[in-house]
Design a protein around this nucleic acid. Structure first.
Lengths: 284, 284
DNA sequence: AAAGAATTGGAAAATATATTCTAAATTGTT
DNA sequence: AACAATTTAGAATATATTTTCCAATTCTTT
């Protein structure tokens, strides 16, 4: 009946709400189910949804047609897109893609624009981090940190600032922490000494550094637990890790940021300080 | 081959990660797509997912079988259930109520809350940065960077990661850059050598480090231009600086973040690369 | 370099799912 | 209470999607 059906979920929801009264009994059943269980509509088949609201599949099709769609599938598309676009986790890549498309038109020769673009994508990365980090991983990390006599930080090149920050701030909350900095090629030697009493936090991103891989492999073989901060579960350092954080940092035209990784690092240190609050002093 | 397939997403993910190496090339493609885009697997048809990772639909079926499922559909069920479980009963009004409740009292003993809180404040800091940085400061910085034969980075303690990042990424856009790292107490000696052809980018925050102050003073006296990244115009390193960025980083209960500073650092490097685009290679 | 093994692409078959259609049931009207 | 109009159930049909299977290709081994 309506000329053009609502083309986003929010519109559809209010349309359903406002026309609720004119609907027939069965269609009302469908209406309230649809409003209350968007995820079921998105993910389950017509048959099971029909069953859930105690209705025939064909009734749901009729419902969709009443609101102007060609069928239930077309309406379902809206619900699926909502999850893909706005859902907690991995709308991420899609958002980034859209964002980058949009930014194709900005003038990259103006530093001011670069700044704005960069701030924007870092914000997106942080939002993603906030929603995607798993409670459980954080808890387990804190336990590992608490149990460790000393924490060793591994990370070179792009990952180095993160490792350096961890070393610095951990020692400021009075946790013994050393940076495996590989000065004079010492890294290999240094990792010999690590054992079950210690903990390695290894940070490594895409073209994974062999130094960091070696540290993880060796210390893990010696029985030292490992927390990995990396960009993929498939990362070589994720393999042997007891906990692996998968961080999707912002990427703007080839350049990858560290914002999300730094934020995670801060979270680990501060949570640790609060939970086992030996510190008091904290960093100034 | 495996007796019983993983029956929850997390298990499946780690199973995929750990067996990644033994997979054939096409199956690897599928594996990383599956890990990176769980929502697509949950919501899109085999055909479109196959297309997205540039593979035949049948390959995805084979992938699912390798991990013990009867077919792709059975595996997809896991991904769908994950979404359904994440939002148990997201009735609209209920969701809003929960959201409003959330921000009232946060329990800081729960790392998860710390993470959320931290991400939020970093986002705010970035928004501030985006709006507060002066066009003119950026332009002048780029000119100084362009004019310099070599850029030297100064920053210790909390500021060290920022300086390290700048050194790393500048050299990746083919700008000569050295970190004045003060190893073996060399900082003083190193800064003797700086002159009008060089540039110092100094990073320093609240309890200002004397090392960094010394570098700025001495090199500036020798005629080297200085860009300061600091938290106040009154900072000792701002005095002698040609350009001073005043960065208000997030502060959560005593702990200061580096997010905004890192973002500014990235902006400088990337703008430089675009404007004077010597790079081409960039960082990978 | 050839033979065998494993992997892959793609079309055909099977299955699952959505849609249509008609007869039955319900509702409202006189 | 009878009739028309509307709504509904459910089987039949159409469509979409997945799965299977085999030929083509690529990789290994000798």
């Amino acid at each position: 009946m309506p000329n053009s059906p609502p083309d986003n979920l929010e519109l559809l929801r209010s349309e359903i709400a406002s026309r609720y009264d004119e609907l027939s009994p069965r269609l009302k059943q469908v209406a309230s189910f649809v409003l209350d269980n968007p995820n079921d509509i998105a993910l389950e088949t017509l048959a099971v949804n029909a069953n859930r609201c105690d209705v025939q599949p064909s009734t749901i099709v009729r419902f969709a047609k009443v609101f102007g769609y060609s069928g239930a599938s077309e309406m379902q598309r809206l619900f699926r897109d909502e999850i893909l676009a706005a859902a907690p986790s991995p709308s991420y890549s899609e958002r980034i893609r859209q964002f980058q498309e949009r930014s194709d038109t900005v003038d990259w020769l103006l530093p001011y624009n670069v700044m704005r673009e960069f701030a924007e994508s870092n914000i997106i990365a942080l939002e993603h981090l906030r929603d995607a980090v798993r409670k459980d991983d954080l808890d387990r990390s804190l336990e590992l940190m608490h149990g460790a006599h000393t924490i060793y930080l591994a990370g070179v090149r792009r990952a180095f600032p993160v490792a350096a920050y961890l070393a610095y701030s951990l020692s400021h909350v009075e946790k013994r922490a050393f940076l495996l900095d590989g000065i004079a090629g010492m890294t290999a030697e240094q990792s010999w000494m690590l054992g079950p009493d210690d903990l390695v936090i290894a940070v490594s991103f895409k073209p994974y550094a062999s130094e960091t891989m070696a540290v993880v492999e060796r210390s893990s073989a010696n029985g030292a637990p490992v927390i990995a901060i990396s960009d993929s579960r498939l990362s070589p350092i994720a393999k042997d890790a007891n906990v692996c954080f998968e961080i999707k940092d912002a990427e703007v035209r080839q350049f990858r940021s560290l914002t999300a990784s730094m934020c995670l690092a801060q979270t680990l240190v501060i949570s640790y300080a609060y939970k086992f609050g030996l510190d008091r002093s904290a960093e100034k």
